[in-house]
């Protein structure tokens, strides 16, 4: 009984907001003005939920860092941690395949192992020593979030590309002490006015 989980983990997966696709280097792919507005709306939404967030973990890519910078302003005192594990990539060859997106095979080996490691590292039931329910935010990327959702629900991971996520949207997973997983929301962006919703 000493090694049984007792607490529930709430995982909030946030897709970064709209960014400038023209830059060739990651550092040049910064948020657009609309992207900054979206991040403000996402931060405001998270703050309005009235829960005490334990931490923000974010991808080390520029668009995730900038989204986190803005969200953080709405959640004062919440620590943030950067990780390379959550960087965008090609998690697994999608089924059915798509014609306009064909990464090299080696990309799936590199990114797939890393994104699977991100899933195992961050998505699990609470440790036995965790006494209270936790609320954690992960600011990352569409492919990473879609793969994590498939894996957490034990759905075939190659189906990840059948889902679509808006910029700044909130995906909420609940992991019970029993290990049961519930997807409470997938890509919620209903808190944004329709003319500010994008999927770039």
């Amino acid at each position: 009984d000493n090694f049984k989980a007792r607490a529930t983990r709430h995982i909030f997966l946030i897709r970064h907001s709209q960014y400038n696709l023209d830059g060739s280097l990651d550092k040049d792919r910064t948020l657009t003005e609309l992207g900054r507005e979206q991040a403000e709306l996402t931060g405001g939404r998270l703050a309005s939920l009235g829960v005490k967030f334990d931490k923000i973990v974010h991808s080390s890519m520029t668009r995730a860092i900038e989204t986190t910078d803005i969200i953080s302003k709405h959640l004062p005192g919440v620590n943030r941690v950067s990780t390379d594990l959550l960087r965008e990539g090609a998690p697994i060859e999608p089924d059915p395949p798509v014609s306009d997106w064909k990464p090299e095979a080696r990309q799936y080996y590199e990114d797939g192992a890393r994104i699977e490691a991100a899933f195992r590292n961050f998505i699990h039931r609470a440790d036995a020593k965790q006494e209270e329910d936790s609320y954690e935010i992960f600011v990352c990327h569409a492919n990473v979030i879609r793969y994590i959702v498939c894996r957490a629900l034990q759905f075939p991971p190659e189906g990840w590309l059948r889902m679509s996520l808006n910029n700044g949207s909130i995906t909420h997973l609940v992991i019970r002490p029993s290990g049961r997983v519930a997807l409470r929301t997938l890509g919620d962006s209903g808190f944004m006015p329709p003319d500010k919703i994008t999927r770039t």
Partner: peptide, 20 residues
């Protein structure tokens, strides 16, 4: 191919492999 896809819920899904 990672993960079970049999449709049967694996209640020890996060205990079978090291975390990273």
């Amino acid at each position: 191919r990672p993960g079970p896809t049999s449709g049967v819920w694996d209640s020890n899904w996060d205990k079978r492999e090291p975390r990273s």
